[in-house]
Design a protein around this nucleic acid. Sequence first.
DNA 1: CGGTGCGTTTGATCTGGATCAAGGCCGAGG
DNA 2: CCTCGGCCTTGATCCAGATCAAACGCACCG
Lengths: 239, 239
Amino acid sequence: MPADCAQRRGGGGCAHCAARPFSVCASVPDADLHRLDALAETVTLAPGQALFREGDPATHVFNVTSGSVRTYRLLADGRRHIAGFLFAGDFIGLDPAEAHSLSGEAIEATTVCRFRKVAYRALMAERRELEAALLARAGDELAAARRQMLLLARKTAIERVASFLLDLPGADPLRPGPAGLVRLPMTRSEMADYLGLTLETVSRTLTRLKRGGLIRQVSLTEMRVEKPDALRMLADGDA
Amino acid sequence: MPADCAQRRGGGGCAHCAARPFSVCASVPDADLHRLDALAETVTLAPGQALFREGDPATHVFNVTSGSVRTYRLLADGRRHIAGFLFAGDFIGLDPAEAHSLSGEAIEATTVCRFRKVAYRALMAERRELEAALLARAGDELAAARRQMLLLARKTAIERVASFLLDLPGADPLRPGPAGLVRLPMTRSEMADYLGLTLETVSRTLTRLKRGGLIRQVSLTEMRVEKPDALRMLADGDA
DNA sequence: CGGTGCGTTTGATCTGGATCAAGGCCGAGG
DNA sequence: CCTCGGCCTTGATCCAGATCAAACGCACCG
């Protein structure tokens, strides 16, 4: 099996897609799902495998259907900034630019659903609710970007880590799965490059939060939020 | 004259709008300009005057037509993050949320062009090129937000200030006005809150750039970029 | 003109988080 | 079962930028 594993799908994939309720595809009514299905390709990624690279022509848009993806940029001397972590339901491709401004790689075993950009645009021109959904997504992403800029510009290390734990899917009690259980598939170094810190500071800060009883380490890659309110106060700087 | 000065416009304002070539309105063909005109209100702001406040219902979208605006958020203990500086041609209102997540204030004497959100949406539904232009804007703004996050997460003070000077309108030789002449209507403290630094560090860093001959102070609020290439290298971390 | 009040610059000192440096833990592979 | 290679934690030290503290410049105004 080749490393880069993309396949046209069998029929009806979208109807059974576990990520659809969270994704932009939710705005496509069931009756029209076959239109999406006709365009969709499923891509399977091994841990560490690249989905696209900075500078590549941006020929596709993506929906993450399982696993997780990191997007990042590098400075010339190797400093890395992780722009975001993407999980099931997240959409990549709002940027209308011709070339990717970020690289994207799987963190763990991951599947994404891929559409040719031109075909997706054509569908969008026809199904206006899809365009509206995308504009709404763009607004949400912009709001998230602003929160992250506030974090990076003005929050302390402990406030950053607290914010991060609360932003990850799983921290809020609404989602499926045991409430307050946060999965951390990324390394300390990746968290650091996302939060504008070093891996040592991230590690020390998590230790501080554990010692304070705000979180508990459940396993190597899972934390339980023990005091969500206290963590929220910390995250928001309501000292 | 009341402090909050908004007026329905006389006819034909949009046709003569100096900011139109730079703004989303550029995508509305001349023949349809009367539609915009019918919706537009002009607002005049004194220095420091608020345009909207965090938490206010977001009833309008705006286009800056002259002057400059700062948008910002505060943490509970007073730490401020300036999300952006907006100049002629810039659009506010991509965020589809019902309430403003930022406050916006004039930095200097400023005029903005205001549309009721519901009316603007209605126009958008009709004139699809306006929606497309807005989606493109959203993409651009997202790309800019990512660059700013990289700056905040991983760049040094001098790299941040260099990036800032180059991002301001006027730094690039394409724009009207003398090439390389950058207007800085905002205070050092505002630059600091935008760049994640303190005002002292901004001041010292500007002094360093002056001493290095990369920029020259033309007046209290104007800098001339003397070595744009060297400044660009600094800004991009191509050490 | 001589205050007076911002905003800016510059200097001295401090500190949160970076950097440098060991070990520790654990899963994979021999 | 041991060893190897990642990743993580913890400790010691360092330093870029924060904080504290004066002046300085300049527009505004009585």
